[in-house]
Amino acid sequence: MRSHPVIELTNLSKMFGYGDATTIALDNISLRINKGEFVAVMGPSGSGKTTLMNILGLLDTSTHGDYLLSGQNVGNVSSRKRAKIRRTKIGFVFQSFNLLGRMNVLDNVSLPLMYGGKSKLARLHAASRLLKTFGLQEREYYMPYQLSGGQLQRVAIARALVNRPSIILADEPTGNLDTKSSEIIMHELREIHKRGNTIIMVTHNPTLTVYADRVIHMLDGRIDSDSSERKVRRRNSKRSLGGAVEAKK
């Protein structure tokens, strides 16, 4: 397996508020994530998982420490540059889907391409092709309110993928879904992972960690445990377990 670090955090901290009201959301975190990894992030509420995802996705900046993305320091690049990196390298999947309610499915999926300056025809074409792989081609002209939660999340995943980003950041992607829909979403994510994407997924559901090849536990803004550091061997057993689930289907 290749192991280029696509994400490298060094002594990274994030504080919210000032003075007595300061919250330390991330406390001196160091983390390397290699290209092609599927990382599950777990931990109790308030442990800093979302904060970590926001910083990884360049929606937020750290208070201290360094963040190298594909070897490039992105800690203090301009907001314009950060928007461009979000658009080209990162795809977000949120717990609450976050589709634009006034746009149909096709327009929602093609939105990232618009900000990349693609022509309307090219972006609708790309979005349509992608929706087909998700089995959603009949829903192209549906409005978000006409879709089920599982369908909405698949549309959101399609949107995250439309720019062919190398990193997918999913913050509790199955948090609002039932077991059946969760399973479908996890299969989609695994397919994406198989195609070589790096996936970082926050989840509260321990059973979903079987899809991941690395599990990070967070506690009070720190990394409490990291499966890749404890037992490298276990990764292989996890892999076979993931394979077993697929075989069962």
């Binding site: 928007a83 461009k84 979000r86 658009r87 977000f92 976050n98 634009l100 900000y115 990349g116 949107r159």
Partner: peptide
């Protein structure tokens, strides 16, 4: 606005 920024809209856009 948050969603648009998350998918890569710049402040200028």
């Amino acid at each position: 606005i948050g969603i648009r920024k998350a998918v890569g809209a710049t402040n200028g856009q």
